[in-house]
Design a binder for these strands. Sequence first.
RNA 1: GGUCCGUUCGUCUAGGGGUUAGGACACCAGAUUUUCAUUCUGGUAACACGGGUUCGAUUCCCGUACGGACUACCA
Length: 510
Amino acid sequence: MKPIRVRFAPSPTGALHIGGVRTALYNFLLARKYGGTMILRIEDTDQTRFVPGAEEYIIEALAWAGIEIDEGVGKGGPHAPYRQSERKHIYQKYAQQLIAEGKAYYAFDTEQDLETMRERLKKEDAINQQYGISTRGQMNNSLTVSAAEVKQKLDAGESYVIRLKVPADQSVELMDLIRGQVVVSSSQIDDKVLMKSDGMPTYHLANVVDDYLMQITHVIRGEEWLPSAPLHVLLYQAFGWQNAMPQFAHLPLLLKPDGNGKLSKRDADQMGFPIFPLNWTDPKTKELAKGFRESGYLPEALINFLAFLGWNPGTEQEIFSLQQLTEAFTVERIGKAGAKFDIHKAQWFNQQYLRAKSDSELAGYLLQSLQNQKIECSQAKAEKICRAMRQRINYPDDIFENSKFFFFAPTTFDEQVIAKKWNEEAVKVLSAYRDELKKMSEVSSEAAKATLDTVAASLGIGAGKILQVLRMVITGQGSGPDLMLTIEILGSDETASRLDYALKNIQPKK
RNA sequence: GGUCCGUUCGUCUAGGGGUUAGGACACCAGAUUUUCAUUCUGGUAACACGGGUUCGAUUCCCGUACGGACUACCA
C-alpha cells in the first residue's frame, strides 16, 4: 500500500473554526494510524480575504490541540512551498497546459456581461443558470472569438480568466469513502474559473494541482465540498491524473445546537460557548472571541469530544486519549448525518479529564491562579485543597473560584443559615469548640471531628445540629467540601479566629 | 429554482430482515453524603411518513415530507 499522505488545507481568513479542528483531527488520526504524513497547506489564493495573524493562529491552535504537522507551512518539506500564494507560477503552467490541449479557454467577459447573462437566463426560466455548455457559445471567450483576436486581447493586457471547458453529457462518478458512489452529469457542472484575472488560481485548480503534486492519497474535508468534488474529478481527468486521484471522504457537518444549519460563530456567541480553539481578536474590529483553551477546556478533552462528533469506535468506551484514538480510528466508522454541537457533552468530557488528574497536577492550576492574585501558598497546602475540591470542579479555574474561603476569612455569612440555625445552642457549642481549638497547635480532620463531638456531647447537644452553622462560620457559605478536612487545612488558629469573629459579629435573625 | 447529501431517545450515537432497539450526555426519582457536589441505583424518552419486496421490515427498494450543503474571478 502506498504510504498515506493527508493534508489539512485551511485558508487564513480568520480564526480556525472548531469544525476545522475536527477535520484536521480526522486527517491526523488517519495519518498516524498508518504511519503516514500529515501536511498543512495554506490556501491563501484569495488575497482580498487574507487576514493577518490567521496563519499563525492556525498553527498554534493545532499545536495546542496536539495535532502535529509533519510537513507544510511552518515545518517545511519536500514539496515546499506549502503556501499557495507562493506557488502561483505552478498553477499558471498547468492552466496553460489545459488551454493548449483545448480543455480550458480564455474568457474576457466583464462582471456586467455575466450579470446580463444570468438575468437573461432567469427570464428564460432556464433550468440552470450557469456559464457552461449551453451558454459559453454566446459569451466573450476564446471559443467564440478568433485566435488572432484572442492573441490581440492578451497582448493588449485585457483582463481575462481561464475557464474549464466541461465536456458534454458525461456522467462523472466519484467514490466517496463515507457516502459511497456519487454520480453527477457533467451538464450540471459549469465552466468553473480556474485562473482568476489577478493571476491567482481558484480553489478548484490549486487544490487539484497541489494534491497531485504533493501525492495526497486521501482528501478528508467537510461536506460543503461534496458538490464541487465532481468538478475536481473532471480536472483530474483533464490532466490525465485519474490513476493518481486521491480517495475522497466528505465529513458530515457540525450543526447548530438548536434548530438546523451549519454551526456558526453567531450561534456560539448566543449560546455562550466558544467556537474557536484559542482566543481570537479580530484585527479589524478588535472584537475578542473566546477560545476553548481560555475557557478552561483541556485539549485532550476537546479532542475526545470532537472525535466523537461524527465518528465512534463501535464499542461503549468513550474516553480516548489521542493515542487510543489513532488506534481505534477508521474512516468506515465515520457517520453520514450532520452532528449538532452540544456543549454539555464537551463539559462532561472536560470534567472527566480534569478529575482524572492527580492532586499535584491540579495544584498546579490552583497555584497559577494564586500567583496571579499574589497569594502565597505552599505546594502541600494547594494539594490538600485540591483533594478537597476535586469532585466539585469542571474547569481549572473552578478550583480557585470555589476555594477562596481558604485564603480569605469570611466577613459575610449565608443569611438563610443564620435565620434557620443560629441559636443559643449553636453559640454555646461554637464558643466551646473555639476554646478547645485555641488550646491546640495543629488539628487533623480526625481531631477536629473528635473534638467537636466531645464538646457537643458535654453540652448535651448533637454535633449534627450545628455542623451547618459551623460551616457557615468558617467559610461563610451553606455548602462546600468536607468540613473537617477544611478545618485541617485552615489550621486550629485560623479556625478559632474565624469562630471568634463570627461569634462577635453575627446577630441572630428574628 | 437546480444539483447533491442526509433522517434511530431532547443531544451524540450502537445496531441491523425476527432484539425487552443498547450505551453516553442532559433530565427526573431514590440511596449514600451532617450541606452542596461526587458516587451508586432506577426511570422518562427514539427507528420521519407512505408504498413495495418478504412469512416477517426500524433494517432492503421506491416515493413523499422534512432538514442541510452547494449554486462567486470565496475557500
